[in-house]
Structure formats: C-alpha cells, structure tokens
C-alpha cells in the first residue's frame, strides 16, 4: 500500500522522479494535517449537531448548504463523515497501538530468547496467520459483541502478527552487532541489554509498522461495521454510514454511499504516502522492494 519504486530504470530519469516524489510527500503531509485538524477541531468548534434530523431536507444532493448532501433523515453528510472519520480513526489508532505493543513484546521476546522458545512462538504466529484476518476478526467480534472494545480487540488480535515478525527479524539482526557484544561483555544484565540496547534499535521499525497499520485497522473496522458486526448502528463510523446508506442507494441516491467511502480512501492514501517516505528514510536499501 505504498511506494513501488523500480530503481534501476527510474534512477536514470533523474530530477523528474525526485520532484514527483516531493509533490506526493507534501500532498500526503498536507492531507494528513487537514484530516487530523478536522477530526480534532470540528466537533468542539462547529456548533452543529451531527444527529440533527431534518425530514424536510432529506436525501438532498450536494449543494452549497450541504456540500456532500444529506442522508435519508436529512442529516448533513459532511458533518456525519467528519464524525465518522473521527470514530474510525480513533478505533484504528487504538487497535494499531494495542497490536504494536503486543507484537513488539512477542517479537522481541522470541528474538531475544532464541532457541526453542523462539521456534514455538513463531510457529504459533504462523498458525494464527493461516486464519484469514477478517474471518478471525468476525469470529472474535461475534463472540464478544456488542461494543467498541470487542472491535478494537478483534483488530488488535489479528494485526500484531506482522509486527511480531518484523520486530523479531530486527532483534535477530541486532543481536550479532558489536555494540551488543560490548554491552554483554561489559557485564550488562539480560534485561538491560534488551531494554537499553535492543528495544531502541527496534522501535523505528515497530513505529513505522504501526503507522502503516492504522489504515488497515480503519478498513477492518469499517468492514465489520458494514457487516453489522462492528460498532453499534447509532455510532457514526464510516462503515456504519455506508451500511446506513444502502437503502438510499437502492432508491438511486449515490451520495450517501460515495462520500463516506472517499473519507476512507483519502486518509489511507495519505497515510501510506507519508509512511512510504519515512520508510525510504529509515531503510534506504529496501527502496526497491514492493510493499502493499
């Protein structure tokens, strides 16, 4: 879901390549800034009720009064989308944080211990990854429904695996570095080596994985909510908005479906754009690898 750079060929194209790069980075950064400001500032500053029902203005197409139109009970869609994005983003960030903490702990422990503990843990990670993510998420949510926390837990439970793999690989490569040997021969305890020397080296990769996980987690939340298994119907998340709009869509009104989806696509692209630039900075050698 980020950069695909075909190095040898594009490098010869010189400055043109660099400028598209900068443009993409700046656009992504600006979009992320707008999104963050909107979800933080609109609710406290704009004195409009997103739940305000106005049946005389129901299902109006986009206009000056309602830039994105209104839904089937006359609620302003722009306002609903901002509130929905706020909920989806919050769930996404919470789930990504939880998954990163679990993944880093498991991956670092497996990598630092090595031996049979490492083999058992990584086998378990492989086993859990052979269940399709959304299906496992659906199962967890179905069992613990309803509420926000089961959704966050189900996303975290399915997303920590990749972080654990990344962190373990990084710990394994760090373990053989001279400065770790120096710390060990200097008499540092296992714990001290792990916390003071290994963890700081692993954190950039884990943080990058966490940022890339946010759009994933948002997608997951909206898919669950769309299926009617996620957030309760009265909570405006982007998934529940799209689910709510199905009735109007079948009656021919496209805008209540189109716009919440765009509110998912644009942040995803913006976050992926930012994270892609960051990844190139922290590991330039992997630039030519394709990551989705």
């Amino acid at each position: 879901m980020a950069e695909a750079a075909v190095e040898p060929v594009w490098r010869s194209r010189g400055t043109g390549r660099r400028s598209t790069h900068t443009v993409r980075l700046r656009t992504s950064a600006a979009l992320v800034a707008v999104i963050v400001l909107a979800v933080l500032l609109v609710p406290p500053l704009v004195r409009l009720d997103q739940q305000a029902v106005d049946l005389s203005a129901k299902l109006q197409p986009p206009s000056w009064a309602h830039p994105l139109g209104t839904d089937d009970v006359g609620r302003d869609l722009l306002l609903r989308c901002v509130y929905g994005l706020r909920v989806s983003l919050l769930v996404g960030v919470a789930a990504a944080l939880a998954a990163t903490v679990v993944g880093t702990a498991v991956g670092a422990t497996a990598g630092a211990l090595g031996g049979w503990a490492d083999r058992v843990v990584m086998r378990l990670v492989d086993t859990i990854s052979s269940v399709p993510h959304l299906l496992l998420g659906i199962f967890v949510v179905a069992m613990f429904r309803p509420g926000v926390w089961p959704v966050v837990a189900s996303i975290a439970a399915t997303h920590w695996l990749s972080t654990a793999r990344i962190v373990r690989a990084e710990v394994l490569s760090l373990r053989s570095r001279p400065y770790i040997d120096a710390a060990v021969s200097g008499g540092a305890s296992r714990w001290r080596v792990a916390v003071r020397h290994l963890l700081p080296g692993v954190l950039p990769q884990a943080a990058l994985a966490a940022v890339l996980m946010v759009p994933h987690a948002m997608w997951h939340e909206s898919a669950l909510s769309f299926l009617g298994l996620g957030l309760p119907a009265h909570t405006a998340s982007l998934g529940t908005l799209i689910q709510d709009a199905r009735g109007s869509l079948l009656a021919g009104q496209w805008w209540p479906t189109l716009f919440p989806g765009l509110f998912l696509v644009v942040p995803t692209l913006a976050i992926a754009g930012l994270a892609g630039a960051w990844r190139e900075r922290i590991n330039p050698r992997r630039r030519s690898e394709l990551t989705l």
Binding site: I242, L249, V265
Partner: peptide, 22 residues
C-alpha cells in the same frame, strides 16, 4: 494504489448503483 485503498464493499455498492440501477 487507489483501488488497493478502496474498500471492496464500497466498490461493490457503487457498481450496483452504476450497472444495476443507473
């Protein structure tokens, strides 16, 4: 990249609108 970022259920609903209704 845009299609990769777009949720499949959203594409499905837009396709229903375009091909089945419109």
């Amino acid at each position: 990249y845009v299609l990769e970022a777009a949720p499949v259920f959203w594409i499905a609903l837009l396709a229903v609108w375009l091909f089945a209704l419109h």
